[in-house]
């Protein structure tokens, strides 16, 4: 039986289709579900083995990116989500999804006081470009297993990882020690603390990242595609979704 993945949509989420495609290409069965349908039957969540919060502009980023989506999920799905995470189901938040997971308090550590936020890029504006990333091989993150370096697109205006003022170093060291920083930019792109691009929870199951792996599942999508040898080979982003499917199958 295929792994079943719930991909959330609605209220301004806009990467649900490519996210679902990436999971399907990785061998899962992806279901795009409208947030209002999920919230009216919260238990539905437990019939899926993974939960994806795709990129987009939920609620127009008004009041801060991910903020109102997080409020809505918290107030109507909070208890189920807590249970879902406690049952060690993998959760991914991409871009706006990462912002929402952070606002929900699921990252970097579920159910602990917040220590992290995603602030406006240092440039003050939205940026669409491909960036080089290093994946931390020692990370506990199940999503980035086997990856070392990769190139993915970023498309955000609020991706600067910001840690609780005054305790940045302590938090950062703790995250490193726990293997909770699976992805870093190789260069300065948005002012992120320690060039952090992605963060996971201490179990490596809840993963949030600013880059868009779902937009790099084929080499055709690569910006230098016309110079690549194998233009229609799978892209490097696909492995993130395959890792999830592997984890589910291995449970």
């Amino acid at each position: 039986m295929k792994a079943k993945v719930l991909v959330l949509t609605g209220d301004g989420i806009n990467c649900e289709r490519e996210t679902a495609r990436a999971f399907e290409l990785a061998g899962a069965e992806a279901k795009i579900l409208h947030i209002n349908d999920l919230l009216s039957a919260p238990k539905t969540l437990h019939s899926y083995q993974a939960f994806a919060l795709p990129g987009g502009f939920s609620f127009g980023d008004d009041l801060g990116s991910g903020q109102v989506l997080a409020l809505k999920l918290q107030s109507l799905l909070g208890a189920e989500l807590k249970e879902y995470v406690a049952r060690k189901n993998p959760v991914i938040g991409i871009c706006n999804g990462f912002q929402a997971l952070t606002k929900l308090g699921l990252l970097p550590e579920p159910f602990a006081p917040r220590t992290m936020a995603l602030a406006k890029n240092d440039s003050g504006s939205f940026l669409d470009r491909w960036v080089h990333l290093t994946a931390e091989e020692k990370s506990i993150c199940i999503w980035t297993k086997g990856l070392s370096s990769l190139t993915l697109p970023i498309r955000h205006g609020e991706g600067k990882v910001t840690l609780l003022a005054g305790e940045e170093e302590i938090i950062h060291r703790k995250l490193i020690a726990n293997g909770q920083i699976p992805l870093r930019y190789t260069e300065e792109v948005n002012g992120s603390f320690g060039r952090i691009a992605g963060v996971c929870d201490p179990l490596g199951l809840v993963f949030g990242l600013m880059p868009h792996p779902e937009a790099a599942i084929s080499n055709l999508q690569h910006p230098q595609s016309s110079s690549l040898q194998n233009r229609d080979a799978p892209g490097v982003g696909l492995q993130i979704f395959e890792n999830c499917v592997k984890y589910i199958e291995g449970r």
Binding site: N14, R21, F126, L127, D128, P153, H212
Partner: peptide, 8 residues
């Protein structure tokens, strides 16, 4: 500053 590749 424009998103030119959403929808992948």
């Amino acid at each position: 500053r424009y998103d030119h590749e959403v929808q992948a």
